[in-house]
């Protein structure tokens, strides 16, 4: 599998095309914004989106775990799309999810979509943030510590290929902050050109756009 190495907070991480951030030295996988059952959430508005997105997301995750010696996973928040997600989740998906959290030490840094009262009972470590080696992992950006790894925004970027533009999700980082793309199947995105993201990263930053099987790197200065 293609990936790109990135040095953040003096640590060596790897960025994978599906949006995984892997910290090899700690055997820790970081993924963000899985939004389980986002598709079925819309059944409330009578839009019957195919209920297979959670399965897709979990299969992708399982494949990564099978290929790498992952010992712990940090879910950077918004694991579920809404508090009824587990009730709607197809049996197959549930099975897969509980298999993973049983096998691997999983922590969820709670996001705005996560309902703590329910998630506490299913065997996840819940916390607002985790600090490892001066890096703070949390759903929202924080300045508590020197380095912050976070999600929430679902960043995407427009690439020009052969004079045609395509949107891809991406990582974006500078010396102190690293913003993760969303890992869920149906999750949309916010352009990195938007003010909310720009004000966090200006003036000098790097973008890692993700395509189906490659990671790219673009430097942005000014």
């Amino acid at each position: 599998m293609h990936y790109k190495d990135v040095f953040f907070a003096d640590q060596h991480f790897s960025i994978f095309p599906n949006g995984e951030l892997y910290w090899q030295r700690k055997k820790t996988l970081i993924i963000s914004d899985l939004h389980f059952e986002k598709g079925s959430f819309f059944s409330e508005t009578r839009q019957f989106i195919p209920p297979f997105d959670t399965i897709e997301t979990l299969r992708q995750l399982t494949k990564f775990i099978d290929d790498h010696p992952v010992e712990s996973i940090i879910f950077l928040g918004d694991l579920v799309h809404d508090k009824l997600a587990f009730q709607r989740m197809p049996g197959k998906a549930k099975e897969l999810f509980f298999y993973i959290i049983k096998k691997i030490n999983c922590t969820l840094t709670v996001g705005n979509h996560d309902d703590a009262s329910f998630l506490r009972d299913i065997g996840l470590n819940l916390t607002k943030n985790i600090i490892i080696d001066d890096i703070c992992f949390s759903h929202h950006a924080t300045s508590d510590k020197k380095f912050s790894v976070f999600g929430h925004y679902h960043p995407k970027v427009r690439l020009k290929i052969n004079s045609r533009g395509i949107w891809t999700s991406c990582f974006i980082l500078n010396k102190e902050k690293l913003l993760m793309p969303s890992y869920g199947y149906f999750t949309g995105g916010l352009s990195i050109k938007k003010l909310e993201i720009q004000k966090l990263f200006k003036p000098e930053y790097e973008i890692y756009p993700l395509t189906k099987d490659r990671v790219y790197r673009i430097e942005c200065k000014k």
Binding site: S40, S43, F48, I49, P50, P51, P90
Partner: peptide, 8 residues
């Protein structure tokens, strides 16, 4: 929705 395994 008419899905084969699971409907809404």
């Amino acid at each position: 929705g008419g899905y084969s395994l699971q409907g809404y």
